[in-house]
Amino acid sequence: MHVPTMAEFLASGEQPDILFWVGCAGSFDQRAQKITKAFVTILNKVGIKYAILGKEEMCTGDPARRSGNEFMFQMMAYQNIQILNGYNIKKIVTACPHCFNVLKNEYPELGGNYEVIHHATFLQQLIDEGKVRMTDTGGFKGKKITYHDSCYLGRANDIYEAPRKVLEAMDVALVEMKRCRSNGLCCGAGGAQMFKEEEKGDTRINIERSDEALSTGAKVIAAACPFCNTMLTDGVKNREKENEVEVLDIAELVALSLGN
């Protein structure tokens, strides 16, 4: 499979339908790369005309801004917007809620206006339009699965149902944690916490959250954010449950259910 870049599209004089914004985690983190690969597998299978920025993509500046470094955020935003506008991008899909939030809510006032869609919503649309047909190749039918709400998808942008609809399309037995939807507990990674040691406390946030997920008895913890995924995977490992319980992104769940 070849993953086309914007530069290639430009050279051929064509324009893709969507830009897939991969994000730093999706590009560099080994676990998150699997989510990226799953998502492009779906795009490829459905036959969507998409492209990535490749080496031209840069950090959106989210962790810089939320840690307090506005200068660095503005530098990154400036450069990204130059590139995105240079390619005349209209529609962006991303698998990272943090990138999604910045691109959707924070770039417009800096001159970057795009239709920005998170992959949970995008996948739901593909399912609704019948472009993605779920089979049970993943063996998720009737399986106990819980969904962890990402803060930047849920509270920050009011997207609670799209990822759940994707799971419903697989006929999974969705079990909710007590703290779900707008009451959902953070995984502990947001606000640039991913890049530093947690402050002193009684327990780690990701352990508190993954314990709650484990207590549902779910065999799969579904997430829709690469950072949540890392945090919850660490939490599951901490309880030595990694052989019984998987932490999977909804894109991975869909990719596994596409049939052979």
Partner: peptide, 12 residues
Amino acid sequence: FAPWKLSPDDRD
């Protein structure tokens, strides 16, 4: 251009 110490050439 990423929060980790990894080469931008490896982004893709």
